[in-house]
């Protein structure tokens, strides 16, 4: 099978949907001839024209609300925000409008839109261009939240998000953009709410998201050399969350480490830990659940400090060892 980068997979998913469905279009800042801040839409304006690859003013409040209004009246907009940090400016439309309309209107009216946005640190872009704010969005009933870690997942999940009749926040991790995996040429859909076991193991379970899936797989490979067998689960979608796969894995391994880049305090890891604490898997635990997340600090500019602000491979290895060695 051919390999694609994560970035190409996202682009291919959108292009295939746009060829099939006239109602799908993209709006966002600099997505036209510039090709988007990270180049995701590069070449698309040439194929689809400026009507459907719609370059907007720098107006996150307006373009998010415009996507809501267009979705409510029959279109299927994909909104690209240049950096996920800017969701603060689009927040009113996502939280107070998009998320609520269907319920608040008694089930009449739907908002089929996808907000795609690159998140995460590691690019030296510092405090206002490096955050991972996904936990905020998971807190809002009415928003689905997707966080793919591989090219294969990105393509299939994006199709599912576009096909969904409800608003979906689709987080793309910047450091994942260049990662490659086998991606089928034909269009395919990965259902929202289905976790993926990225590596099977028996001694401990790691639940990791986005770039931390890759770090956790590296850690698992190292740990294997020391005879520790680690299972790595990528939930892929935070809302809906596939609790069953996580619970089953913990019942098998009896140990859980949760890893995300987002700040640990109030992060989604707390939710995953709680799912286990409230489930029958709790009785299987042989060690306290460990959570790894970003330090409670704005992402700094200096590359060494930037790295130190979020979990690294060594942190994951140590956390698993602590969990496994505890009897």
């Amino acid at each position: 099978m051919r390999e694609l980068t994560y970035l190409e997979a996202v682009r291919e998913a959108m292009s295939q949907e746009m060829r099939q469905n006239e109602d799908v279009f993209i709006l966002g800042e600099d997505i036209g001839v510039y090709g988007g801040a990270f180049g995701v839409t590069r070449g698309m304006i040439e194929e689809f024209g400026p009507e459907r690859i719609r370059n907007t003013p720098i107006s996150e409040a307006a373009i998010s609300g415009t996507a809501v209004g267009a979705a409510l009246t029959g279109m299927r907009p994909i909104l690209e925000l240049q950096f996920s940090d800017f969701i603060t400016i689009a927040m009113d439309n996502m939280v107070n409008q998009a998320a609520k309309i269907r319920y608040m209107y008694g089930g009449k009216g739907k908002v089929p839109m996808v907000l795609r946005t690159p998140a995460g640190s590691g690019t030296g872009a510092a405090a206002q261009h490096s955050q991972s704010l996904e936990a905020w969005m998971t807190h809002i009933p009415g928003l689905k939240v997707v966080q793919p870690s591989t090219a294969y997942d990105a393509k299939g999940l994006l199709k599912a998000a576009i096909d969904d009749d409800n608003p979906v926040i689709f987080y793309e991790h910047k450091l994942c953009y260049k990662t490659k995996s086998d991606v089928p040429e034909e269009s395919y859909s990965i259902p929202l709410g289905k976790a993926d076991v990225k590596r099977e193991g028996k001694d401990a379970t790691i639940v990791a998201t986005a770039i931390m899936v890759h770090r956790s797989l590296e850690a698992a490979a190292e740990l294997e050399k020391e005879g520790i067998s680690v299972e790595v689960i990528d939930p892929r979608t935070l809302v809906p969350l596939d609790t069953e796969t996580i619970i089953e894995s913990v019942k098998k391994t009896s140990r859980l480490v949760v890893v995300h880049e987002a700040v640990k305090r109030g992060g989604f890891g707390g939710e995953i830990a709680s799912v286990i604490a409230e489930s029958e898997a709790f009785d299987y635990l042989d060690a306290p659940i460990k959570r790894l997340g970003g330090k409670a600090v704005p992402i700094p500019y200096n590359p060494e400090l930037e790295k130190a602000a979020i979990p690294g491979v060594d942190d994951i290895i140590n956390a698993v060892k602590e969990t496994v060695n505890r009897l």
Binding site: I63, G69, A71
Partner: peptide, 17 residues
């Protein structure tokens, strides 16, 4: 002020379709 952009989006639907 919640309606400004929603109305704009609905008008975009009218124009595009």
């Amino acid at each position: 002020g919640g309606g400004f952009a929603i109305a704009t989006g609905a008008a975009l639907t009218s124009q595009m379709k």
